[in-house]
Every structure is written in C-alpha cells, then in structure tokens.
Design a protein around this nucleic acid. Structure first.
Lengths: 335, 335
DNA sequence: AGAATCCTGATTGACGTACCTCAAAAACTC
DNA sequence: GAGTTTTTGAGGTACGTCAATCAGGATTCT
C-alpha cells in the first residue's frame, strides 16, 4: 500500500535496521562497502523517507534568534509581525524563534543584544560597524551560526546572507524611473543611512543604470534622511524649492514624510520607493507613489529559518536559498 | 514542545482518550453533554489535529492528478518541469501526483483524459467548454474534488481556482504600457484564444485600464494567435504593414514568433508579454521585450496541492490559498 | 598475545493519532 | 429490581522514523 520502508531497504541490503539508519542519516561508522550496498538497496526499492514520520519522531529543537531593529511603523513593523506569525507555525516544526528587538542605528545596543544570545543560530539585521563585525566573529567562535538579514554584513564573515540583491533593487528602480520620466529632468535620491548596506547597494545600482542608460536625467547628490519622516519631508521640500523635480527615489524608510511632501508638489514628481507598507500601499492607490519595490518579508523569514537550520545541521544550504525575490507593485497590482 | 495533543483535551474535558477520539472522529455513542464538554476543551486548549501523525496512523496516501496541456516549449513546458520536480518532494509527504498531458485546444482529448482519472482530487488547466464542465460535474459527483488551474472554469462548479487574478494581470500590463508609450499611438493586443478564461480576463483588464486612464492610445481589435509562434509573427507583421505600432500586448504563448517580428520593426514597439520563459527572458535581456508579467509556477503547483489536500480532508482551504502572485520582470530584475 | 578501535546487529522507547476490544458504569425499560 | 441498552473507561497495537544503548565480532595496533 504505502511505499517501501527502511525495513525493506534493510532486507534488500542484507543489513540491520540500525545500519540503514546510520547510512540514511549519515551518522558515520559504516564501512564504504556496506554504505554502497545500502544506497543501492534504496535505489532498487525506490525508498523515499516518510517526512511525516520523520518529523514526528525527531525531537531535536532548534533555537534561533532574530536580532532586528524595533519600530511600530513601516518595514520593521511588518518584519516583527511576520516573525510573530511564523513563530506560531514554526513551533510545530520544533523551531523556537526568539525575537530580540534593538534600537535602530544604535551600535552599542546591538552589540549588547548580540552578546546576550543563547541559541543555535542568529539572524541579524544591522548597519555595518566594526564592533558588530567583531561580535559576530565571537558568536561564530562560540559555535553559533550567523546569518545577515535584509542588509548584508560582508565584513563580518557571517555564514550566509538572506535578503534581496539590493544592487538589483536599485537597478530596477532606475529602469522604471528612466522610462517613466522619459529620460529627462532632475532626480532626487534619498537614502536612510549609507552605513546600512542595503541602502548603499541600492544607491549604487540606481546610479549605475541611470548613468548607463538614462543620461538625459540629472542625478542630484544623494541625501540622507535617517529613515525619519520629518527629515525626509524636509529634504524634499528644500530641494524642490530650488529646482524642479522630475523624480524621487526613496531608498529607505520615512515614507510618511515623503507622502506629505510629494502631495504638495505640482507637477508631482515620479516617485519610486521601497517596501510595501500601509503608507506606501495607500500612496500607490492615490497616485502619490508610482512604484513600490518590495521584498517579501514572510518569504525572507522562512528562508532565513531554512538557512539557519541547514547551517546548524552542517549541511550547506542551496546556493540560492537566501536570495529573496523582489516584487514590483504599481497601483494596479497591489495585494 | 509542540501544541496540545488529544491527551490534553482528554484531561481538560475530564474524559478518557477513547471518548475524545470518538468525538473528534464522530464515531457516535457519546452523550450530547460529553460531546459539548470535549468540543469546549478542544477550543480551550487550542488543539489542532496533527495531520502528519494522523495520516501516518491511518496510512493515508493522497492521489492527485494534474490534467494540463502538453508542450515542450514555453509556459506549459515550465509547468511540466515544475510538476515533475515537486513530484519528487511530495512523495516524501505521501502525496502521489500523476501528470496527465492533454492536447491543447482539443476538447475531446481533455474530456477523455478527465474520464479516465482515478484519484482523490484533480487540477485541470483547460479552456471553457460545456463538455468539460459536464465532465467536471461528473467527477465531483463521484467524490473527486476538482481545482481549476491557471485558467478558471467558473461555469463548471469546480471546488476552487488556483492561479493569478488575470483581470489584475491585464490591468497591470496596461498600467505599464500606458506609461511606457507615453499615452499615445496604436496598441496591438494578441490573445491565444478567447475561449481560454485566463486570456479573456487579461484582455478585459487591459482594455479597462487603457480606456479609463490612457485615452490617448488607440486599441486595435484584439487578434487571436492560437498560442502559435508562426501565427503570432504573421499577425504582427501584417498589422505593422498598415499602421505604426506603439505597443504590443501579448496575452498568450507564441513568444518566439513575437521576438522574430518585433526584431524587424523600427521603431521597436513597446512589448509586454506574459510568463517568464527562456524566450521571454532572453528577449528581455536583449531589449526586444520591455516587460514580462509572470506567475510563479512552482508556487502555483504547491498551492494547488495544498488546496487539493484541504478539499479532500473536507476542511475549507483559506480564502486566499489559491491566489498566485504576479511577478513583474524588467531587464534589470530577471532572475 | 592482549588491548584498543572499529563496524555491525539487536533491541527499545518515543512521537501523535487511528482504530479496535473488553469490561465497567450509568441510564434506561417494564 | 432485574434486565436491557447506552455510554464511558482502560488498554493495547499500529503507522515509519529517529535516536540511543548494549553487546559481540572483526580488525588493527603494540
């Protein structure tokens, strides 16, 4: 009725159940000859592991931490929501997720958070700073696997990065910006902080494509809005006073301020932002924003957990496991 | 560890395991009072049956069929590939997937395929036809749950639809078409067959938005290319001979022909197509296509299996379970 | 030769649910 | 109150895998 089991494999391979188990879960301690015989028997019988039974039986509990900036609006709020939601589901797969909120841009706070951890692996979303890199190295030395989330920390020697390709994100923004504004006019770029790797990479990608393919536009010097709505609003208002704006590319958070500022401008500049939040969704609908480039947070969390599990099991995760897709939203396909 | 078990329910309800079992699987022979107490305990403890363990115990194997058009290029080829790949993985979860290829546009062949089925649930990708609707009704009468895939069959009374919102797909295409061509010029729309629900819905959505918001464009009468490269090529060449083309919206398959035809036109019309295949990916890269609206096939297959499982278990699947996201690809974010 | 190491077999107890039996208790009937 | 029926309890086995232990045999080293 149901397919072949380990018993069938054992019988065909002429070995005991214990040996089949050792081979299947490569626990070692089996001679090469017998390993081959068992593997041949697996092929011959067409055995496939029964995942339900495996999970039922497995009693290993994974302890993972997510160290991410706190915040009750925008992207980080969605991230916390997604984490809380997955937490539920993951319980049933023996994965215990602890969420450690930190203060954004506060390196000392983030270092302190990392130091207190007690878990098998950790996913970190943080800006680049030598202190953080050191702390990550210390964690790894203590046997904790480290994954950078959303923003990469290439200098830290983290085991993996889970998030979108932010250079591609910036390039994509430029592609649509150039087409929408017909390759002419001033374009304002507003990042949160250039110390945040995701922001600097997006900026890089955006500038590359604008220069390569949309030479008719003028790129204004990149502004830094600290992911703060008031600051972002001020930047837009101040810039628009001195020169007409054809386009605005908002690389980080603070979109509420952007909505306020853009709403007052006439003609309205083409506005492209990141992350589909309540604010940006609404602004898309009303026509204040023209495009939103989003990363699927839920997919990111799930991917991060998967990669962390692979890393703690010492099985190398598939090469593209950490790559999160970019979703492009216009007013017609908001979900 | 993981959630509450039947044991917890029994304890809270002050009854034995056997009684909880009788209530949960309504085997009868339990007084109304006790039934209520057990049900209350289920709610109170938040008990959810562990499907894996249940299936393990009852040795249940799901048998699902996918009835989809055959084809060795384009979307259907990717669909078959995705199915074959998932087949492997699903075996581990005791889900046996059988793939039944049919001849596209051949209603009799599709009816014959449906009639031969022996399984718990079936996912069908087909055009609208009364014969097919009848066959689906017959399947349902025989206890087989039916899901429409990619293209809906609303007249058939299918249990669920799994696929993108194709009206939204068309609307999104129009949004970008209107912006890219600066709201002026002739736009050619090429469907495969208007009997295919996905095509007619996309066309509808596209026309709606073009008329509402991009009145400067002229929509040429919709052509039907039968998803055939040669036919599509011919349509484009013929149309372009008599009038200049600002944009082309290809709703169905046959993109190889589109590439050939568009490549010869000068100025090149803005071209928006569906489904990220080898052909469209390459055309995006070389600049022949400007935008590809894609549905994630893998996600679709996974969603279909999930919905089919829910249906066979007689648990209503979540409302949005069958909705597949649309992905928008430009030359900068092809993956 | 004896000791240490390595390989393998045999066995056992979870995991959460389904399904079955047997008997005791409780609720009815007349 | 004796007999009948209905309801409930207690207990077991099975599903397929994981994980662990213990013991015996083979191999290698000294």
């Amino acid at each position: 009725m149901s397919g072949p089991t380990v018993r069938d494999v054992a019988e065909v391979a002429q070995v005991s159940l214990a040996t089949v188990d050792r081979v299947l879960n490569n626990r070692g301690g089996v001679s090469a000859k017998v390993v081959d015989r068992v593997k041949a028997a697996v092929v011959q019988t067409g055995y496939v592991r029964n995942l339900a039974a495996a999970n039922l039986s497995r009693r290993r509990i994974y302890r993972f931490c997510f160290v991410v900036p706190s915040g009750d609006t925008g992207f980080v709020a969605l991230l916390h929501a997604a984490l809380a939601q997955e937490q539920q589901r993951l319980r049933e797969e023996q994965v215990h997720v602890q969420i450690v909120p930190t203060r954004a841009f506060d390196v000392q706070d983030q270092v302190a958070a990392l130091r207190k951890l007690d878990c098998d692996a950790v996913a970190v979303m943080a800006s680049e700073a030598p202190e953080i890199n050191e702390e990550i190295a210390a964690l790894q030395a203590a046997g904790v696997r480290v994954v950078s989330l959303v923003a990469d920390l290439p200098g830290s020697g983290r085991d993996a990065y889970v998030g979108p390709d932010n250079v591609v994100a910036g390039r994509t923004a430029a592609e649509f910006m150039g087409r929408f504004i017909k390759d002419t006019g001033n374009v304002l770029m507003i990042a949160g902080s250039l110390a945040a790797r995701d922001h600097s990479e997006r900026l890089l990608g955006f500038q590359m494509v604008m220069q390569e393919r949309f030479g008719g536009c003028t790129l204004l010097p990149a502004a830094q809005g600290a992911d703060d709505a008031a600051r972002v609003e001020q930047i837009v208002v101040d810039t628009a006073r001195t020169q007409p704006l054809a386009g605005i590319y908002a690389i980080g958070a603070g979109n509420r301020g952007l909505v306020r500022a853009v709403g007052t401008l006439d003609p309205k500049p083409t506005t492209i932002v990141h992350e589909l939040t309540q604010t940006s969704r609404e602004a898309l609908r009303t026509g204040i924003f023209d495009l939103v480039i989003d990363q699927d947070i839920r997919a990111g969390v799930i991917a991060a957990v998967g990669v962390m599990r692979d890393l703690t099991e010492a099985t190398t995760p598939p090469a593209d496991a950490g790559r999160i897709k970019l979703n492009i939203y216009s007013r017609e396909n908001i979900q």
